[in-house]
Design a protein around this nucleic acid. Sequence first.
DNA 1: TTCTTTTTTTAGTATTGTCTAAATTTTTTT
DNA 2: AAAAAAATTTAGACAATACTAAAAAAAGAA
Lengths: 227, 227
Amino acid sequence: MISTSIENYLKCIYQLEEQLAGERTDSTKGITTGAIADRMETQAPSVSDMLRKLSERGWATYEKYQGTHLTCEGRKIAIDILRKHRLWEVFLVEKLGFKWDEVHNIAEQLEHVVSGDLVDRLDAWLGHPQFDPHGDPIPDKTGVMHDKRKKKSLHDMLSGEAGVLVGLGDTSDTFLRYLDSFEIALGTRITIVERFQFDGSVQVLRNDKDKLTLSSQVAANLLLITP
Amino acid sequence: MISTSIENYLKCIYQLEEQLAGERTDSTKGITTGAIADRMETQAPSVSDMLRKLSERGWATYEKYQGTHLTCEGRKIAIDILRKHRLWEVFLVEKLGFKWDEVHNIAEQLEHVVSGDLVDRLDAWLGHPQFDPHGDPIPDKTGVMHDKRKKKSLHDMLSGEAGVLVGLGDTSDTFLRYLDSFEIALGTRITIVERFQFDGSVQVLRNDKDKLTLSSQVAANLLLITP
DNA sequence: TTCTTTTTTTAGTATTGTCTAAATTTTTTT
DNA sequence: AAAAAAATTTAGACAATACTAAAAAAAGAA
Ligand SMILES: [Mn+2]
Ligand SMILES: [Mn+2]
Ligand SMILES: [Mn+2]
Ligand SMILES: [Mn+2]
């Protein structure tokens, strides 16, 4: 039996690896103790302890001071947890009517419920959803994500370019509520009117109607598909 | 924060108290260490330790060798867990299509998910069900069970008497599957044809059609309403 | 009542996961 | 290249929960 704590660590390392894959080219250095401690809001020694345990159990490679990488088996577990997390989020939003900023903590608990059948039945009953309420792809039963969309950050788009919001670089509750206040949701069409070099902010058109200004930080976390 | 383990103990003690209330008249002696250990499939010393902790926290009264009773606050927690357990069971059977003998272990985990909103939304979305898939009453938000039915064990019914199955004295997976093999479910109408003094078994009519013989032990665990 | 059996508690140990403080190693700066 | 700063690991401790073996108390039998 895998403990809740181990599952959380594996998922965390997986997500840090995903993130790094998008940013850096060299993957020689593993995920650092510090990055994990930050993300899990825990202390570095706890992470060191856990990394030794994960490598003993064959779910991560780990050499002192070199950071860590998931093994195939570790990655499989992480993806399985992520699948459960996102499916439960869909359930909470679509069926129970929660808002997208209310589901994370609940899904954080539900993802650890273990049952051979439960996830698959949930998946089928929800109609095999492809994405969770935050636009993140839901892996299928075999761990494959069928996300063929090429997402581009609003940060990297040019004046006049338009796209539809389909993903977020940050899914924290505070950012989600911040987007609510702008009336920006998944599916919202965004067109760049003007970029300001001064502070990196952008003026955009929301759904071809309303003009608004988004900070550089917000823009960087909005991921769109452009036609 | 209340741990999963504590929640399980409180629920267990509550259910033993319920059961005892139906059997005995004197409630002076508390629920025994041994009864709890049996039901939780744990060792007596673990129970002794936990009882001391429960009484320290004000959820149970406990004096050495005298057994335990829940306090009001302890009972409130136990009922809350029971409510969650039974609502999740309804969800698993009605929405996801699980069979009644497959849901207990899953609900045993789901009952510990904590969220102010989740249970109430689940309850409303399920249409405020009164009973779980095993016929057990579901407490409302305030902890009250609205179960006005007078249940009578098949064991205590006379020849010729008839009733409708609405509850079970034992909800173990093995007993549930045993009932499946007899094609007996909640709502099944049962009429006593003949009682055998020899071994306490009864010959009954199922839904006014098929004759079958039930052992004394089965009969004792079938709870019916009689018109 | 006294002896025997059963139940319960105490004592001592193990496991898991966390933390702080101190030591060590790596990285960065001068 | 040496010194300073930052990151990481080790050491030692603690809380929660469970277990076995032994002691103590309660219940039942003779
Ligand atoms: Mn989690
Ligand atoms: Mn999500
Ligand atoms: Mn439980
Ligand atoms: Mn039930």
